[in-house]
């Protein structure tokens, strides 16, 4: 592994949380929420004032980072709030109840993303926190989310939307303020998707990319080839142990091939998070992963 590719743990946390805003992005199932929690935990343990932001969806982060503040932002609520603050005080409620707000959202696609980003910008600028970590939008929504501001800059020639879009774009394109952490798994499909996403972000969004986080990396490198090992006189469960070793070795070989492919395909450094022997990540797992990131 070339040393410039794989970050040492000492610099991993520093690099991943170098900006005041960090947006964590990745396809469904890769552990975006886990990575968000780990970054928040590690930064909080290092003494920084951390805010975690969750977008829409069900709240899943609360239990993972006890004692770190978590905010849930919902686009419909923020759009209402936005209208309320921009001269629609009297009719904001009516706009929502009559469905006019849906027409506004459709007439100006991205406006819901923009109000969310606008709120994030406000939190980032408030001075209350040293680091804001956003559990980014799911599935393929990341690019649309990140390009909402330039899209609206084209559409709106003036007024509050344009001001908001300009301010958001300033934040996103400032490498000292904002970076995107892409998350993947050491498997074929997630690696393919990360490669596609990273190039799309490079081409279409002027935002700094942080080192890639590869989640659930199997740390086992020392499972010997069972055909080289004598089981002595043991019989019971020997076949199970042999099958398990062959299974693990094959998965680790596959994993290594994917990690290498990622190194070749994307010129970003990698931080690897160890797989936990569990089917449900809890606050303890998050703390263990965070400790591994900063020591």
């Amino acid at each position: 592994m070339p040393p410039e590719i794989l970050l040492s743990n000492v610099t991993a946390l520093t690099e991943l949380t170098a900006t005041s805003l960090v947006i964590v992005a990745g396809k469904g199932g890769v552990g975006k929420t886990t990575v968000t929690a780990v970054l928040a935990r590690a930064a909080a343990d290092a003494g920084r004032r951390v805010l975690v932001v969750e977008l829409d969806g069900k709240p899943t982060l609360d239990g993972l980072v006890p004692d770190v503040e978590v905010r849930h932002l919902s686009a419909p609520d923020l759009l209402e709030e936005y209208l309320f603050e921009h001269g629609f005080r009297r009719i904001a409620k009516r706009l929502v109840s009559t469905g006019v707000i849906d027409v506004i959202g459709t007439a100006a696609p991205g406006i819901d993303d923009l109000v969310v980003l606008g709120k994030i910008k406000q939190l980032e600028r408030s001075g209350e926190w040293d680091l804001v970590v956003v559990d980014g939008p799911a599935a393929g929504h990341a690019i649309t989310f990140l390009t909402a501001a330039p899209g609206l800059l084209d559409a709106a020639r003036g007024g509050p939307v344009r001001e908001q879009a300009t301010a958001v774009q300033e934040m996103l394109s400032d490498p000292n303020r904002c970076q995107v952490v892409l998350v993947t798994l050491p498997e074929t499909t997630p690696v393919n998707e990360l490669i596609e996403t990273s190039y799309a972000i490079e081409e279409r969004v002027g935002v700094r990319l942080a080192p890639i986080v590869v989640n659930q990396v199997d740390p086992a490198t020392d499972v010997p080839d069972p055909s080289d090992v004598s089981f002595g006189r043991a019989r019971a469960q020997v076949d199970d142990a042999i099958a398990a070793a062959e299974f693990r070795r094959e998965r680790i070989a596959d994993q290594q091939a994917e990690l290498d492919r990622l190194v070749d395909a994307v010129p970003l450094r990698q931080v690897r998070l160890t797989a936990r022997p569990t089917a449900s990540i809890d606050a303890g797992d998050v703390a263990a992963l965070a400790a591994g990131l900063s020591t």
């Binding site: 086992a220 090992v229 199970d240 142990a241 070793a245």
Partner: peptide
């Protein structure tokens, strides 16, 4: 090495 093989079986069964 033998211990590693049995540990591996324990790991996978745990998961």
């Amino acid at each position: 090495e033998l211990a590693a093989l049995w540990d591996n079986l324990a790991d996978l069964r745990t998961v």
